[in-house]
Amino acid sequence: MATTTFDTLKSARHRQEAGFSRKQAEAQGEMLAEAFKITMEDLVTREYLDARLEAFKAQVDAKFRLVIWAQGLTIAVIVLPQLRAFFTA
């Protein structure tokens, strides 16, 4: 499992140079390391999002086609006979 790394020693040195005590600098470095601990498996890639979006679009398209067919069938079964009766009467 790959994780991002945070250099706590480098962070502590920068803080000490900025005027923090060694103890404060080390504590903040450790705290930041914990905050930045992210597993790469939890991150989502652009390719994954694109693939999921395409799959979703295909699903929506299929359902939309079904609705269009259902409306067409409704028109054929209900409206067309009514129009025929109206014009032949």
Rank of each mutant, 00 (worst) to 15 (best):
H14S: 09
D42S: 15
A85G: 08
G72H: 15
A70C: 04
A18I: 06
A18P: 07
V67W: 03
Q82A: 14
G72L: 11
W69N: 13
T39Y: 09
K37H: 09
A58D: 13
D61R: 12
A12N: 03
A76L: 13
Q24L: 12
R84A: 15
I75M: 02
Q71M: 15
F56H: 09
R84C: 12
V77M: 15
T88A: 14
F20Y: 11
A58Q: 15
Y48R: 08
W69V: 13
R13I: 13
T3V: 10
A27M: 03
A55M: 01
R65L: 15
T8L: 03
A27T: 04
A51R: 11
R22V: 15
A18S: 12
G29V: 14
A89F: 10
I68A: 04
D7E: 07
A89Q: 09
E54W: 05
A55D: 05
K10N: 15
L73Y: 03
V79P: 00
T45F: 00
A85V: 04
T88G: 10
E54K: 08
K37N: 10
V67G: 09
T4Y: 04
S21P: 00
Q71W: 06
E34L: 10
F6H: 07
M40F: 09
T3S: 01
S11F: 15
Q71D: 03
G72Y: 12
V60L: 14
L32H: 06
K23I: 13
K10G: 14
L66S: 10
A76R: 07
R15I: 00
F56E: 13
R84L: 14
S11E: 14
F86Y: 12
T5N: 08
L49P: 04
D42L: 08
M1W: 11
K10S: 14
A58W: 11
A85Y: 06
A70I: 03
Q59A: 06
R13S: 02
F20I: 02
Q82Y: 11
D61Q: 13
E34A: 11
D61V: 15
E34T: 08
L73Q: 02
I75D: 02
H14A: 05
D50F: 00
T45Q: 01
I68M: 05
D7Q: 07
A70S: 08
R15S: 03
R13D: 07
K63H: 07
A76M: 09
I75C: 01
F86E: 07
K37C: 06
